[in-house]
Amino acid sequence: MRERREMTPEELDGWLRAESAADDAEAERRLALLFDALVEPAPRPGFTARVLASIRAEEAAVRLARRRRFRHLAAAAVLLSAAAFAGLLLAGPGGLGAIPALGARCLMAAGAIGRGVAWFWTLFATAFVPVAEALFRPWIFGVAAALALSSILMLSSLVRCLEREKGVVHALLPH
C-alpha cells in the first residue's frame, strides 16, 4: 500500500505546468503524485465481517429456496402419482362391475385423467426435475431416474389395465 504524504503547492504547480506545456508523460507522472497524496477513503471498521455475513445470509437463503423448491416438486409428484394410482384403481378390475353406468363413465373419465396425469408425471420426472434440480444436487439425478422409471412402469400397467377393462366397461355402458 502506498504511503500517504502531504500534497505540496510545488507538486500542483508542477502538474499544471506540465499540462500547460502539453507534456503528457510528465503531466501523468505528476498527477499520479498528486493522487498519491489524496486521502484513500476507507469503509467503517468491520467491513469485511459485514461482507462475509451478507454472503452467509445469501447462501442460507439460496439453500432454503432450493429446499423449498424441491419440497414443492416432491409434493406435486406425490399428488400426481396419487391421482394416477387412483385412476388405475378406480378403472381397474373389481372397481367397475358393481356400479351403475353413470359411475362407470365417471370412473372411465378418472382413468383417462389418471393416464394423462401419469404421462405428465413421466415427462415431469424425466425432464423437468433433472434440469431444474440436478444442476445443483447430483444425487437428484438418481432420485429423478427412479421416479421416472416408476412412472413409466406405472403408466404401462395403467394402460394395460385400462385396455383389459375396456371391454368390461363397454358392456356396462347403456347402448
Partner: peptide, 14 residues
C-alpha cells in the same frame, strides 16, 4: 474471499 475483501476494501470503496 475474506482476504480478498481485506485487500480490496479500500480500492473498491475509494
Amino acid at each position: 474471499f475474506a482476504r480478498l475483501v481485506e485487500r480490496y476494501e479500500r480500492p473498491v470503496f475509494g
